[in-house]
Design a protein around this nucleic acid. Structure first.
Lengths: 237, 237
DNA sequence: ATGTTTAATATGTATAGACAAATAAGCGGT
DNA sequence: ACCGCTTATTTGTCTATACATATTAAACAT
């Protein structure tokens, strides 16, 4: 890890910040002090400190010095794994069923769901599928895709490949928004998931963009006790 | 944004990557080519490219060049805001009620909930409180705190200040794990939240560490339709 | 044909020096 | 006591150069 000099300087300082030795607001040594301490040039020290500043661990003020930042960003990295990969990872057999697939010109409602900019009519694909773990229903996926971006010949792939997995490997995206909430299953989804209609379900809705264009909207519905989203904090924002 | 030269070089390249002009795998110009293009020294180009590499947007290989990275990390930044701040932000009046507060030596069950390392007995504070928005129940908070880290005189503060808010401003943490799932309210929480017992609720459980020590465990229960977690994707992993 | 050495090339890291920009602190005048 | 000016200090940025290291392609030997 601490291979090069500037990496070592960085990790030395990082360690002291994360251990609490240097508390938020503490003024870390000036560049010229670290220069002497590590017997190196200012550029080397500067590289280490710039990197720490970019990561949000320190704040730098001209004439004043560099200070340990207050933990402002209370954020965590939310992993949104591919469903087949996740089920396989837990050692269960994965199953996929395409329930319906409709190709049409977008209605206003479709464009609202996609949060598409402009009112232009787009070709869209509306599909619904079911993910199974050890033969039991695991999640319902409702998806709307923008066929102006997703090539039309992908449609046949979705008969056997979950669209999320296909998209992950074929269509990169630049921005996404996730919304997570809880609802009761309701009669239709209860039947598909094999649970009672009042069963609490976790819903993850995701919109994905590539530049200015919306790629896809997806709503995943999981029976509440089958699935837990896990978000791990990583210090570097 | 593009103030300095190396920042401009960086954002020029970033734009082309995010717009899709330069696709994953594309070899971006060599350092000496960018040197000529921008009429600057190699160090300046190098700083821009190093920064892009650190952010995970490009991969660099000696002798071969620098390449646009494949979008490997399907992760998003999950904002877990302070509840009073969030309610105030949406323009509602915030209310806080401390329901119970117990100080005791930790049982094995407490240590399991905290995922505390080692079997040492710790002083802990077990409390339960309710958050209100415009006078209506918004969330139930069940919290277990490690009094070996949280100073004891903070306990009096919790009569009027939500523990989450207090901790946020007083006790920094280095690591956290969040689990998100859905359950039915159940009789006890239904009463506290003023909803039907079969109501679907969103549950966020969070454990927080500072170095090797567990700081706190908290379980937040929100009526499903009152609250949505929002996770925004940011390109730099 | 195949394996080995060598050279060329691109990035990685570092030095030493320079000037610019921001600002905390001191100073002086009112 | 307050305001404005100057100065010293620290970070921000950049240049020019140097040597190290990894890797590929070509030259060479077997």
């Amino acid at each position: 890890m601490a291979d090069t000099l500037h990496q070592r300087i960085r990790s030395d300082i990082e360690t002291r910040i994360l251990s609490g030795t240097w508390e938020p607001g503490y003024r870390i040594p000036f560049e010229h002090e670290l220069m002497e301490q590590y017997r190196c040039s200012r550029m080397t020290v500067n590289k280490a400190l710039s990197s720490l500043a970019e990561a949000g661990l320190i704040e730098r003020r001209r004439r004043a010095g560099s200070f340990v930042a207050r933990p402002l960003a209370q954020s965590a990295v939310l992993q949104i794994p591919d469903i087949p990969a996740e089920i396989t990872a837990r050692g269960d057999a994965y199953g996929y069923e395409l329930l319906s697939s409709t190709r049409r010109k977008s209605t206003q409602e479709d464009r609202d769901r996609l949060r598409a900019t402009g009112n232009g009519v787009l070709p869209v694909l509306d599909l619904c599928c079911r993910h199974l773990a050890r033969g039991e229903p695991f999640a319902i996926e409702e998806r709307l895709m923008n066929l102006a971006i997703v090539p039309e010949d992908a449609i046949t792939a979705f008969k056997t490949t979950p669209p999320g997995t296909w998209l992950l490997h074929h269509v990169p995206w630049t921005e996404a928004e996730n919304r997570i909430y809880a609802v009761q299953a309701g009669p239709a989804k209860a039947k598909l998931l094999g649970v009672a209609p009042d069963k609490a379900c976790l819903v993850v809705e995701r919109r994905t963009w590539r530049g200015a264009d919306t790629v896809t909207f997806v709503r995943l519905t999981y029976p509440g006790d089958l699935y837990q989203l896990v978000a791990q904090f990583t210090p570097t924002r």
